[in-house]
Simulated assay, not measured.
Amino acid sequence: MKDCKAATRLMSKQLDTPLTSRERLTLRFHLLLCGACRRCEKQFQLLHRAGEHFNQAPPRNDKNDPPGSS
Rank of each mutant, 00 (worst) to 15 (best):
F29N: 15
L33S: 10
K63M: 15
R60S: 12
A57I: 11
G35V: 13
A57K: 14
C34L: 01
Q14H: 07
A50C: 11
F29M: 13
P67R: 05
E23T: 02
N64A: 15
E52V: 07
R22P: 04
R39Q: 13
K63Y: 14
M11L: 07
P18D: 09
L27I: 09
P59N: 10
L25P: 11
L31G: 05
L25Q: 15
K2P: 12
K2C: 08
D16F: 03
S21P: 05
H53F: 07
K5R: 10
S70Q: 12
T17C: 09
T17A: 13
E52W: 07
Q14V: 04
G51P: 07
E52K: 09
S69L: 03
R49N: 06
R39V: 07
L27V: 09
R49T: 09
G35P: 10
A6G: 11
L27Q: 05
L33I: 06
T20R: 02
F29S: 14
S21W: 02
R39P: 03
D16E: 10
N55T: 15
P66K: 03
A36S: 15
K13G: 03
R60N: 10
G68P: 05
R49Y: 05
R22G: 09
T8S: 07
T26W: 00
R60P: 08
K42D: 01
L19Y: 01
M11F: 01
L46T: 15
F44G: 01
P59G: 14
D16K: 08
A57V: 10
R38M: 03
P18W: 03
T26C: 07
P66T: 06
N64V: 15
D65Y: 09
L31R: 02
L10G: 01
P67A: 07
M1N: 06
P58R: 10
L31C: 08
S70P: 07
R60I: 14
M1F: 01
D62S: 13
C37A: 05
H53Y: 07
F54D: 15
E41K: 03
G35F: 08
L32A: 11
T8D: 06
E41G: 02
L25I: 15
L10M: 06
H30M: 00
R28M: 08
D62R: 13
K63G: 09
R49P: 02
G35M: 13
E52C: 08
G68N: 10
T8Y: 03
L33F: 03
A6Q: 14
S69T: 07
Q14N: 08
S21A: 09
A36I: 14
K13M: 02
K63R: 14
L46Y: 12
S21T: 11
P18Y: 05
Q56C: 01
P58Q: 13
A57T: 13
A57E: 15
K63Q: 12
D16W: 03
E52L: 10
C4G: 03
K13N: 04
S12K: 11
K2L: 08
Q43Y: 01
M1K: 04
D65L: 12
R39T: 12
K42E: 01
P67C: 06
L19R: 00
R49E: 09
Q14T: 06
S69C: 04
N64S: 15
F54R: 14
C37N: 00
N61F: 07
R24E: 09
R38A: 00
